[in-house]
Simulated scan of single mutants.
Amino acid sequence: MSDAYGFLAPIYQPLSRLVFGRDLIYANQAFLEGNTGKKILIIGGGDGEAYRHFGKNLEGEFWDLSPRMIQLATNSLKDSGLTLWVGAWKGTGEFGRVYLPFVLDTMPDEEIAQLIRQLKICLPNHGEVIISDFFEPGDFWQKMTQRAMIAFFKVMASHRRKNLPDIHAILQLEGFELIREKCWRKGWIRAQVWRVM
């Protein structure tokens, strides 16, 4: 299996903190409360660093495409009840909550819609999808930083997008409603809770 993020795995956290401080970690942690007794699914969880201190309250599945990221996550999540898997989520299981941490901005719109449809089948009534991601930048410097980031990840990790997805439009079209949101950097970084309508 090709590991597009393998080279970046050891430097991802230092690089992220250099540019964003701890805002990306905070976004990934924003809605981790209330998971005791729930089976959760984390897709694209990377090195698992954001979930380290919540590990004892987390049970379910953790997926990432990068074998190197999963190696790091194994250490970060050693005290959790999560089963770690390398590869693309298989589209099976039943979960109370699904977490998509900074993963939708790496996928074409058609793949996002397909993933959301698969998730909807695996969520019982009132199941929730928690998204942390980048949204439209709020000022000139954010726009320039975003362009530089996309260019960097295109070269270093075969990033497939030239822009950001319209997450609101895709999830609403697939029958989800936004029920909670937290924002950082003037709304450029957001964590959102979406519930099946």
Rank of each mutant, 00 (worst) to 15 (best):
residue 42 I to K: 02
residue 89 W to Y: 10
residue 130 I to V: 13
residue 31 F to D: 00
residue 22 R to P: 05
residue 156 M to A: 14
residue 3 D to W: 08
residue 134 F to K: 09
residue 172 Q to D: 07
residue 112 I to E: 02
residue 53 H to K: 11
residue 47 D to M: 08
residue 143 K to D: 00
residue 8 L to S: 05
residue 115 L to G: 02
residue 145 T to A: 11
residue 55 G to V: 00
residue 40 I to C: 01
residue 187 G to F: 05
residue 141 W to Q: 01
residue 180 R to M: 13
residue 33 E to A: 12
residue 166 D to I: 07
residue 56 K to A: 06
residue 126 H to V: 00
residue 146 Q to W: 03
residue 181 E to N: 10
residue 151 A to G: 04
residue 194 W to I: 01
residue 108 P to K: 02
residue 22 R to K: 15
residue 153 F to H: 03
residue 83 T to Q: 13
residue 125 N to I: 06
residue 82 L to W: 15
residue 162 K to P: 00
residue 40 I to E: 02
residue 151 A to C: 07
residue 139 D to K: 14
residue 28 N to I: 00
residue 71 Q to P: 01
residue 5 Y to T: 10
residue 37 G to A: 05
residue 96 G to R: 13
residue 9 A to S: 15
residue 194 W to P: 00
residue 7 F to H: 15
residue 118 Q to W: 14
residue 52 R to H: 13
residue 91 G to S: 12
residue 69 M to K: 11
residue 48 G to M: 09
residue 177 E to Y: 11
residue 150 I to M: 06
residue 57 N to W: 09
residue 15 L to Q: 09
residue 89 W to M: 06
residue 194 W to G: 03
residue 152 F to S: 06
residue 51 Y to G: 03
residue 120 K to C: 08
residue 74 T to G: 14
residue 197 M to C: 09
residue 174 E to W: 03
residue 193 V to I: 10
residue 106 T to M: 01
residue 87 G to K: 10
residue 48 G to H: 05
residue 90 K to D: 15
residue 156 M to T: 06
residue 3 D to C: 05
residue 184 W to E: 06
residue 133 D to V: 02
residue 109 D to F: 01
residue 9 A to D: 05
residue 162 K to L: 08
residue 178 L to K: 11
residue 51 Y to F: 15
residue 75 N to E: 13
residue 123 L to Q: 10
residue 41 L to N: 03
residue 46 G to M: 11
residue 42 I to P: 08
residue 46 G to K: 08
residue 125 N to K: 14
residue 121 I to H: 15
residue 103 V to P: 01
residue 46 G to I: 04
residue 85 W to A: 03
residue 74 T to C: 05
residue 135 F to D: 03
residue 64 D to R: 07
residue 66 S to Q: 07
residue 160 R to W: 09
residue 177 E to V: 12
residue 15 L to F: 14
residue 95 F to D: 06
residue 59 E to P: 00
residue 38 K to C: 08
residue 193 V to N: 00
residue 5 Y to H: 14
residue 160 R to N: 10
residue 11 I to R: 12
residue 82 L to M: 12
residue 171 L to F: 15
residue 58 L to G: 00
residue 45 G to F: 08
residue 140 F to S: 08
residue 183 C to V: 05
residue 130 I to R: 03
residue 185 R to F: 05
residue 52 R to C: 08
residue 71 Q to S: 14
residue 154 K to M: 12
residue 138 G to V: 09
residue 113 A to W: 01
residue 45 G to M: 04
residue 16 S to A: 12
residue 100 L to V: 03
residue 98 V to S: 10
residue 2 S to T: 11
residue 57 N to G: 07
residue 181 E to S: 08
residue 105 D to S: 09
residue 43 I to G: 01
residue 93 G to D: 12
residue 62 F to D: 02
residue 67 P to H: 07
residue 174 E to C: 11
residue 92 T to Q: 15
residue 159 H to T: 00
residue 183 C to R: 13
residue 92 T to K: 15
residue 149 M to T: 04
residue 191 A to P: 04
residue 191 A to G: 03
residue 62 F to S: 05
residue 161 R to F: 06
residue 180 R to G: 04
residue 30 A to V: 00
residue 103 V to E: 01
residue 173 L to K: 15
residue 146 Q to I: 02
residue 42 I to L: 08
residue 10 P to D: 13
residue 122 C to G: 13
residue 133 D to S: 08
